[in-house]
Design a protein around this nucleic acid. Structure first.
Length: 924
RNA sequence: GCGCGCUUAGCUCAGUGGUAGAGCACUUCCUUCACACGGAAGGGGUCGCAGGUUCGAGCCCUGCAGUGCGCACCA
């Protein structure tokens, strides 16, 4: 820091230190270093999509993880922050396929074939896969990059296959023909979690059908999907609905397709709500989950009238076949109308399941899929601590689990535990097969029975990782991406699922279970819950102890940040303009626990300004010269020195509490308040009196206090602002002062500052009265500055003030007052001194401060000003007195609060007297 | 329908029973030797509404109103 620019320039600093940290292996975790004195601390990154780019959500999420990791290192822990990426099946395959189509390489992925297409996806992954990792480095993420993992790495793939085979053998994975959520755009099955309900405006069509056995009698049916009428195989009514009781067992004539108006039975089923519509439901077992069950109960045939891609097929009849399902809906309504069967079509809003990924309505569809019955459900459900009960508060952090017990997990904020519990209590089997190419192929093999002549021959099935040999064909489907990511916390640590080997895996032994997980509540079911189940099933222990759920970053209109809306700023652009530290600080300051965050660039600007303030405060220290980090001499400490040491202590305590409860925005606010409002605004300004002293010992001691505060501040700031603090740590020479492994090489390894010990407080004379004295002094200064402003005296005009102290007033304190008041001089007068008539003044318990302007000022204006003050003071007195006068107040209130109120009253009384006397002086 | 949030200054938001806060924006003054990415002073709030508990409520309880998000097989 030999040549110090006036403003902080992050660009020249950030890359330098990131390379330095990498070069010194600062991010590397070594299980061999773990001991009782050096506990392990691990976080696994929520693996971003390998082809993704960094969003503000990632910045928030990963900054929190980086803060936790850096703090843990300073706490002396052996830290593993394990990074990696996810292959993101559908998303990645879609992107690559779309790109190849755009380039004109293919019309459909079938043009290439499975193997060739996958080659292209791997090429794409190699080319674009590193982007988000590089971006994470730009924001300072201190991951152990030597352990970076990808969910399709060979070892990881092996884990996935191993788990599949194991669950298959345990009978938890099975294949079945079921109704699944089918995405007609991606042409694959989806899990229930990948379907989002959306409001959809449409029509409720009422149409008539004739009862076959009673010609001339009609039933009216309400439906939102007339295009599925050709696939109806029954109509259903409630068994106890008197309107239709006589019709049960009879038939109606299905109106569509026109060329095949077949009779279908009227069945009775409890599922029907007699109140809804006409109380008659058309039953389409092949295209509706509930109808499928009704069909099952009544052994109804299935008619599948829709192709997988959403186009109506031949069963829909000649009028509808070939039409897309929504066009067919319109057409079906027209057909009904043309035969006079349509009663009415009333506008109607209902909820329809959409494919989250492709954003098209899912089509319930019967198909052969693989399902998982979740393992370890009961243990997983009970290991998460229920929401905090005010009457029975649990420990802030769960203790490590006793041997053989899976352990417990705390959620932050804890209300998510309820959501988790509800989901765990209503688990449905998980559809894990996907009709995609990109992903882990299902390790199941089929073979026709030997010598079998036709397709009708039964299939032999084997579930194992390697091919059983010639003649065996592997299942074409791949696994849901989450079926690999639910193994993330241990598969990334080299777990292989063989007891012997896993027991000798040092990383796994040292770092599993991890400590913290930081993720979004939107993947609580997708990922968090499933990881817990996998952890308990395969490691016998929960995968993490604390889960921090971030908020969701929204734009100013409250919308989620999304690529398609184009409302997400590019974080790297923000880094370029404001610096990585500024971005981190701005995001963290505005992200309270459990609350969504409205993004505002002003927050990042604030972060930049804060970095600049820090920079300049350190510059100021450097300009004072002198020995670095000298011993503080207690006998030379002024009240201001003691005050700032107390404020620092207070800040350290607040920050420690903040970390305990993951209240990062509070930490950042404490850092901001302490450094800017307490240290810079008051202490640094006041210290200039001592620094300008002609007594070298006084000046040296002042510098020693500056160093003490700054060296602590830089450490406190480091988890939030890693780059600038490292630069300043070295620039100010604090690194030279520390042992190499504890800050001598890098601030990253410096010990976390602890609140002051009783000994230190005693040695430095940090009594509580220090605060009161400082507060009174600063108040008097504000009053004096206010006086200056009241009389429109320019801020740069040097004024003479006169001080009549109420008690003792050391010379150096007068110097401080002079500096803070920006005064030419502050003349101290004895208690007997009386001001000339009409001299404006202010006062507090330290004394009276006069601005000798007699004759210059307008007594009337001054009287108005003082009158206003008096009004305010009397209102305050009234407020306090009202409380004190209440008889039960004195009886019931804690002594401390009572004393506070009495002191407050006394203070206001004093002020009132002073204002009254000033008014008297004016009038005389 | 059930569950969970949110409603505090013009804006974005902290506030965990004891004198209503921050940043931005606004008004006035100041390029004073760390910082104009800065300094000083100031204006601005019946804390969504109505009850209740309490000596005392922005905070706890009940109801209501707005708003957002989950979960849910009403076609």
């Amino acid at each position: 820091m030999s040549e110090i620019p006036k403003a902080y320039e992050p660009q020249s600093v950030e890359d330098k230190w990131y390379q330095y940290w990498l070069g010194h292996d600062c991010f590397k975790a070594d299980p061999a270093r773990v001991s009782e004195r050096r506990p392990a601390y691990a976080i696994v990154i929520p693996p971003p999509n390998v082809t993704g780019v960094l969003t503000l959500g990632h910045v928030l999420n990963n900054t929190i993880q980086d803060i936790l990791a850096r703090k843990a290192r300073m706490d002396g822990k052996e830290v593993l922050w394990l990074p990696g990426t996810d292959h993101a099946g559908i998303a990645t395959q879609t992107v690559v396929e779309r790109t190849l189509k755009k380039q004109g390489v293919i019309k459909h992925r079938d043009d290439l074939g499975r193997d060739a297409f996958l080659e292209r996806v791997w090429e794409w992954k190699e080319k674009h896969g590193g982007i988000i990792i590089q971006q994470l480095k730009k924001i300072g993420a201190s991951c152990d990059w030597s352990r970076e993992r990808f969910t399709m790495d060979p070892e990881y793939t092996r884990c996935v296959q191993h788990v599949f085979v194991d669950l298959y053998r345990k009978g938890l994975i099975y294949r079945g023909k079921r109704m699944v959520n089918w995405c007609p755009a991606s042409l694959t099955a989806l899990s229930d979690e990948e379907v989002v309900m959306k409001e959809q405006k449409g029509f409720l069509y009422h149409f008539k059908v004739e009862v076959v056995e009673e010609p001339g009698r009609f039933l009216t049916i309400a439906t939102t999907r007339p295009e599925t009428i050709p696939a109806d195989t029954a109509v259903a009514v409630h068994p106890r609905d008197p309107r239709y009781a006589s019709l049960i067992g009879k038939h109606v004539r299905r109106p569509l397709p026109l060329e095949n108006q077949a009779p279908i039975p009227i069945v009775a089923d409890d599922h029907i709500d007699p109140e809804f519509g006409t109380g008659v439901l058309k039953v389409t077992p092949a295209h509706d989950k509930a109808d499928f069950e009704i069909g099952h109960r009544h052994r109804l045939p299935l008619i599948d009238a829709i192709h997988p891609n959403g186009i109506m097929n031949e069963h829909a009849g000649r009028d509808l076949a070939g039409l897309e399902r929504f066009a067919a809906r319109k057409k079906a309504a027209e057909l009904l109308e043309s035969i006079g069967a349509l009663d009415k079509a009333e506008p109607y809003t209902n909820h329809v399941g959409y494919s989250e990924r492709a954003d098209v309505p899912v089509e319930p569809r019967l198909s052969e899929q693989w399902f998982l019955r979740y393992p370890g459900v009961e243990a997983s459900r009970h290991c998460v601590a229920p929401p905090h009960d005010a009457e029975h508060p649990g420990p802030a952090h769960p203790a490590p689990a006793p041997h053989g017990h899976p352990g417990t997990i705390r959620f932050f904020p804890d209300r998510w535990a309820k959501v988790y519990d509800h989901w765990m209590g209503h688990l449905q089997d998980w559809c894990i097969s996907r009709q995609l190419w990109w992903g882990h192929r299902i390790p199941v093999w089929y073979r026709r029975a030997e010598g079998a002549p036709s397709d009708a021959a039964p299939l032999e099935t084997r579930c194992q990782i390697e091919s059983p040999g010639p003649g065996w064909v592997q299942d074409p489907d791949v696994l849901d991406t989450w079926f690999s990511s639910w193994l993330w916390p241990f598969a990334t640590m080299g777990w292989v699922g063989e007891t012997e080997k896993d027991q000798h895996n040092a990383t796994l032994r040292a770092f599993y279970p991890t400590v913290d997980l930081v993720t979004g509540p939107d993947i609580i079911f997708f990922w968090v819950a499933r990881m817990i189940m996998a952890g308990i099933e395969y490691r016998g222990a929960v995968p993490f102890r604390n889960v921090y759920f971030t908020g969701i970053i929204r734009d100013k209109q409250g919308r989620k940040m999304s690529k398609s809306l184009g409302n997400s700023p590019d974080p790297l652009d923000l880094v370029a303009r404001f610096g990585a530290d500024a971005l981190r600080f701005g995001v963290m300051r505005s992200a309270p626990l459990g609350q969504d965050v409205v993004y505002d660039e002003a927050n990042v600007e604030l972060g930049r300004n804060f970095c600049n303030k820090l920079w300049n405060a350190c510059r100021f220290r450097q300009m004072q010269g002198g020995e670095v980090q000298a011993e503080i001499r207690p006998d030379l400490l002024t009240n201001d020195d003691r005050w700032i040491l107390l404020r620092l202590d207070q800040a350290m305590q607040e920050i420690d509490r903040g970390y305990e409860e993951y209240r990062f925005n509070e930490i950042s606010q404490t850092l901001y308040r302490f450094f800017w409002n307490e240290y810079c605004d008051w202490y640094v300004e006041a210290s200039k009196a001592g620094l300008n002293s002609d007594q070298p010992a006084l000046k040296a001691n002042k510098v020693a206090v500056l160093d003490f505060v700054l060296s602590h501040t830089l450490r406190l700031f480091h988890p939030f602002l890693p780059f600038i603090t490292e630069e300043l740590w070295h620039g100010l020479g604090y690194a030279q002062d520390m042992p190499a492994p504890q800050g001598g090489v890098t601030l990253m390894q410096a010990p976390w500052p602890r609140p002051l010990s009783t000994e230190e407080r005693e040695e430095w004379g940090l009594e509580t009265s220090v605060d009161a004295v400082a507060a009174a002094k600063f108040e008097l200064v504000t009053l004096g500055r206010n006086l200056r402003a009241q009389f429109n005296l320019p801020a740069n005009k040097r004024l003479r003030f006169i001080l009549k102290p109420a008690g003792e007033m050391p010379t150096h304190e007068v110097d401080v007052l002079r500096l803070l008041l920006c005064a030419e001089s502050v003349e101290v007068v004895p208690g007997s001194w009386t001001a000339p008539q009409g001299t404006p003044s202010v006062a507090n318990r330290l004394g009276d401060l006069f601005l000798p302007l007699a004759g210059i000022i307008d007594p009337a204006a001054e009287r108005t000003r003082l009158g206003k003050d008096l009004e305010k003071i009397e209102a305050e007195i009234l407020k306090v007195r009202e409380k004190l006068d209440n008889p039960s107040f004195a009886q019931k209130v804690p002594a401390k609060v009572l004393a506070e109120h009495q002191q407050r009253l006394a203070d206001w009384q004093t002020k009132k007297d002073q204002v009254l006397s000033a008014l008297g002086n004016l009038a005389a």
